[in-house]
Simulated assay, not measured.
Amino acid sequence: MIRFYGTYEIKLDAKGRMALPSKYRSQFANDKLVITKGYETCLTIYPTDEFEKVFEEINALSEFVEEHRILKRSVIPNSAELEFDSSGRILIPKMLLSWASIDKDIKLLGVGNKIEVWNNQQLEPNVVPAQQVAAYTEKVMGPKKREG
């Protein structure tokens, strides 16, 4: 089972390569992964099997619904399959780095079945205050939700 969690601060090299922490890297079969645009201004890294699930859901959407077409155009063309090099690094496509405003100092967030890649300055505005997290937790995970 894929389980990414924790936060890591790392640096990209001048060519746009990064080395994933060994705790994360060990969860990629055949040293392959897929990177794509995230839902905020971040990038998302999936093991290929996990991305296949996302791809199948998005690909199954109707071409006759505008929101579906927009979602397909946002995710599928902006995804790339990558492999680790001999030093355990991945080369992130320049277009994705530019879109997420990522240059050198980044944070990796393990969020379950995927990893989010953030520019440090882009992450701060997306951090939710503790009170809001508590309210979301109560709403989503509260007793009524577990019973039904």
Results as ranks from 00 to 15, higher is better:
Ser22Asn: 09
Lys72Cys: 01
Tyr24Gly: 11
Asp85Val: 02
Asn119Gly: 08
Pro77Ala: 14
Met95Gln: 15
Val75Leu: 12
Pro143Asn: 14
Glu124Met: 04
Leu33Met: 11
Tyr39Phe: 11
Val65Ala: 12
Asp103Ser: 12
Phe64Cys: 04
Pro125Asp: 03
Asn59Gln: 13
Glu63Met: 13
Asn113Trp: 07
Val54Asn: 06
Pro93Thr: 03
Asp105Ser: 02
Pro47Ile: 09
Leu12Trp: 05
Phe84Ser: 04
Asp103Thr: 09
Ile76Phe: 05
Leu20Met: 01
Arg17Ala: 00
Ser62Arg: 10
Ile45Met: 10
Met95Arg: 14
Ser74Glu: 13
Asp105Gly: 01
Lys15Ile: 11
Leu109Cys: 13
Phe64Met: 15
Lys114Ala: 04
Asn120Ser: 13
Lys23Phe: 00
Lys23Met: 04
Ile10Leu: 15
Glu9Ile: 02
Val75Asp: 12
Leu123Arg: 05
Phe28Arg: 06
Ala135Ser: 09
Asp105His: 08
Pro21Gln: 13
Gly112Asn: 05
Phe55Cys: 00
Asp103Tyr: 08
Gln122Pro: 10
Val117Trp: 04
Gln122Gly: 13
Asp31Pro: 10
Glu83Met: 14
Lys139Gly: 05
Ser74Met: 13
Ile35Asn: 01
Tyr136Pro: 13
Leu61Arg: 06
Leu96Ala: 03
Glu116Ser: 07
Asn30Ala: 08
Pro125Glu: 04
Ala80Val: 02
Thr7Leu: 12
Met95Cys: 14
Leu123Glu: 04
Glu56Ile: 03
Ala130Asn: 11
Lys114Val: 04
Lys139Gln: 13
Pro93Ala: 00
Asn120Val: 10
Met95Trp: 06
Gln132Tyr: 13
Asn30Ile: 03
Leu123Pro: 02
Asn30Ser: 12
Ile58Ser: 05
Thr36Gln: 07
Glu66Tyr: 10
Ile115Thr: 13
Glu9Ala: 07
Glu57Arg: 15
Arg17Ile: 03
Ser101Phe: 02
Gln132Gly: 09
Tyr46Asn: 02
Glu56Met: 02
Val128Trp: 08
Gly142Phe: 09
Glu138Arg: 06
Glu138His: 09
Asp103Leu: 14
Asn119His: 01
Arg146Gln: 11
Arg69Tyr: 06
Asn119Trp: 01
Gly142Tyr: 00
Glu9Val: 06
Val65Asn: 11
Ser86Tyr: 05
Pro129Glu: 10
Glu83Ser: 12
Thr36Met: 01
Phe28Trp: 03
Asp31Arg: 10
Ser74Asp: 11
Gln132Trp: 12
